[in-house]
């Protein structure tokens, strides 16, 4: 079974920033979270996956086809939520639905309508007057309505309150009940990714810092809190991140050396690897 997304040696150069070389693989039927700080290259990577930008080097395959192909059949299979929703601001939900229905052979108008209802999206209000959260919900409804095999989402939960994020999470879980469907999403809200993701790719300054099964990462790393002397006593290779305070130290450690370490969340992992990193 071909990977949902397969990236090999991807490089994209800009004036002040280079993305890559990046290798990435999302097996079919899985969910991958793309994390990293602002400017790490997440949106650029997603733009490349969507064919909005062309790579300087390397190859990208989506559902077994090259990403560059302007094939309607491929686009039909990918549901997209961009960082900027991109719908005409003077149109209402139903009109946007009509506009998109001609754009996707597999468009399910009934599904779109029912999703809009589920999201309580006002029928009479024009898109420009939607709140940030509503815009996101409409984008997600549109992405799901044409029954894609792959969802690619750039910050889909940004601007949503916790209740809405919970609703969206359920939607994603329902989406992947089918083993031939996959999701790639980038997000700052790591608590969401924490739950649903099977794989995590950690992007930093255009390169992949970490990539692998989310569970694997959580089994590899742990958090240890202790006195200065206790933490100092740890072997050099064990400590990947260190935060020193007057009241004790916190270290990101490799469980291999410190099996007693506590579980670490993705957020802590990211902050410790970036902000409190200990040099290699």
């Amino acid at each position: 079974m071909a990977d949902a997304i397969h990236v090999n040696g991807l490089v994209k150069k800009f004036k002040h920033f280079t993305l890559g070389p990046v290798d990435l693989a999302l097996p079919q039927g899985c969910v991958m979270g793309l994390i990293g700080e602002n400017g790490a290259g997440k949106s650029t990577l997603i733009n490349l996956l969507l064919g909005l930008k062309r790579p300087d080097e390397g190859s990208i395959e989506i559902l077994g086809q090259p990403a560059q192909s302007d094939s309607a059949a491929l686009r039909q299979q990918i549901g997209v939520v961009l960082d900027i929703p991109g719908f005409p601001s003077v149109m209402r939900a139903a009109e946007i639905g009509k506009l998109l229905s001609a754009g996707f052979p597999g468009w399910d108008g009934e599904k779109f309508r029912s999703l809009c209802e589920e999201f309580s999206l006002p029928q009479k209000t024009t898109f420009g007057n939607y709140s940030r959260g509503m815009k996101m919900k409409l984008s997600i409804a549109a992405a799901l309505a044409h029954d894609p095999k792959l969802l690619i989402l750039d910050e889909p939960t940004g601007g949503l309150d916790p209740v809405a994020r919970d609703e969206i999470l359920d939607l994603f879980y329902n989406f992947i009940q089918s083993p031939d469907r996959s999701i790639l999403l980038s997000s700052h809200i790591l608590s969401d990714l924490e739950k649903i993701c099977d794989y995590i790719a950690f992007l930093h300054e255009g390169k992949i810092l970490l990539q692998g099964e989310k569970d694997g990462l959580k089994e590899t790393y742990g958090l240890l809190r202790g006195s200065r002397s206790e933490i100092d006593a740890l072997p050099e290779e064990a400590v990947k991140g260190l935060r020193k305070t007057e009241s004790g130290d916190e270290a990101l450690v490799l469980r291999r050396y410190c099996p007693q370490a506590e579980p670490v969340t993705l957020e802590e992992l990211m902050v410790y690897l970036l902000r409190y990193a200990k040099g290699e």
């Binding site: 969507l50 309607a72 059949a73 997209v80 961009l82 991109g86 719908f87 005409p88 996707f104 052979p105």
Partner: peptide, 18 residues
């Protein structure tokens, strides 16, 4: 208008061709 709303970019992710 398309440029300002981002529609000209989003449409490229749909099955509408360029």
């Amino acid at each position: 208008y398309d440029e300002r709303s981002g529609w000209n970019r989003f449409i490229l992710t749909t099955a509408y061709s360029r």
